[in-house]
Design a protein around this nucleic acid. Structure first.
Lengths: 229, 229
DNA sequence: GGACGGATGACAGTTGCGTGACAAAACCCC
DNA sequence: GGGGTTTTGTCACGCAACTGTCATCCGTCC
């Protein structure tokens, strides 16, 4: 599950944010000071950090700078201050986004998803070795890591579905005929092309928001299938 | 120099943004409609796109979606609307950031820098291979992508129409007789030549602005059909 | 004005695709 | 090795879209 760290000294606001985030399906953690937040993040890194600017002790700006020294995590400032100077300073310090309190939770999560989309190459847990990722909008396919994600959330696909998806992803934007897929994914020189349909259908159930109206894995009637952004 | 495309229908605002961006050292370009912006970006891609939501014709949401279909450029929405629904919808459509007008130029450029820092999603080591496209004025045919566009907008054509169009496109500027088309598109050695007429007619309805006076898919009386710029 | 080539609209048969059900096969966890 | 679960391939059905034919209309050229 995607984890979010909320650094905010006001107990009421922090709690409200944590609850709202959990409602949205995130694993939410809280910290009341920058020091505590930095410690928490070092010990058990979250996928996103939300941070207030006015904090006791180390303030938000400095907190962001220190966090940025050794962490590439997306940082969103959630502050009551809407002064241009603060916004610019926070972004310059290393924050990725800045929203003004009060903020709708839906907007916040939409911004997190946008950051996720734009985010850097995923690094493996045990090294800085970047894993190539093929991205299609909110969809990510990582052939080497054997991973499929939608809006950052891992999607469980079977081996056949994964091979099919990789084949389509590696030829992104190009039509692949059922015959080509049958040959490349299954190694069949001949066979029932309906087999492809069925697996495409199953894949759509998993990776498309609305499987009946696919946005990425589209059918080109009479031609085949294509994966697009 | 870093280029920014501003898509905004209000002349005053657009001009103000363009001037301010140039003051900040950017190369700034303007477009008054989504259509114009999409065309501009396709012809000569900018490094960032700023877009308004309320545009005549194609609105901002749809414009973002269309832009995102084949461009990974960072998109920032600059809108007067501060409704959560709009913000979420725009981010979901593929925008990377959303700021509410009026916006300080310093904040805007700070956000652009933040986006640049965050970088783009890695796809393949050298980026995805571009899909070849045959262009005829505002008409684009991509045999590999199985796609036809008019002024950048996807046009839905059937398989037969698509094959016919590809055949004509691959012999652009040359006349193809009905017999040749019948043979190459349908594989018929003999048959009713009227069949070709019918499909050409249907194709014209879809790809020509004025199907009665075709500009690209023209008839050469007694000879056949030809696709031209 | 007549004849010919081309455009167009309607229509019914056909095809292509999506889907749910099902059984065999593979896999997994003891 | 065995029992249960997941995955895989096959099938049949139904809907929607496409195709080819025909009849008719239109424009153009002699």
């Amino acid at each position: 599950m995607t984890a979010v760290l909320v650094i905010e000294d006001d107990d009421r606001i922090r709690l409200a944010l944590l609850l709202a985030l959990e409602d949205e399906g995130y694993e939410a953690r809280g910290a009341a000071t920058a020091e505590e937040g930095l410690r928490t993040q070092r010990r058990d890194p979250a996928d996103y950090v939300l941070v207030d600017l006015m904090l006791p002790g180390i303030d938000g700006f400095e907190g962001i700078r220190q966090l940025r020294r050794d962490d590439d995590v997306p940082i969103v400032v959630v502050s009551a201050r809407d002064d241009t100077h603060d916004i610019v300073a926070a972004l310059e310090a290393g924050a990725d986004d800045y929203v003004v309190k009060p903020v709708a939770i839906k907007e916040l999560t939409a911004r997190l998803r946008a950051l996720r989309r734009r985010g850097r190459t995923v690094t493996t847990p045990d090294g800085p070795e970047p894993v190539p990722v093929l991205a299609f909008g909110e969809l990510e396919v990582s052939p080497e890591a054997g991973e499929v994600r939608r809006s950052g959330e891992p999607v469980a696909v079977t081996r056949t579905e994964f091979r099919l998806l990789c084949e389509l992803a590696e030829h992104a934007g190009r039509v692949l005929s059922r015959q080509q897929l049958l040959s490349r994914v299954w190694g069949y020189d001949s066979g029932d092309e309906r087999l492809v349909d069925v697996h495409v259908g199953r894949l759509r159930q998993k990776i498309e928001a609305d499987p009946a109206n696919p946005r990425h894995l589209v059918t080109l009637r009479g031609l085949g299938y294509k994966l697009q952004r």
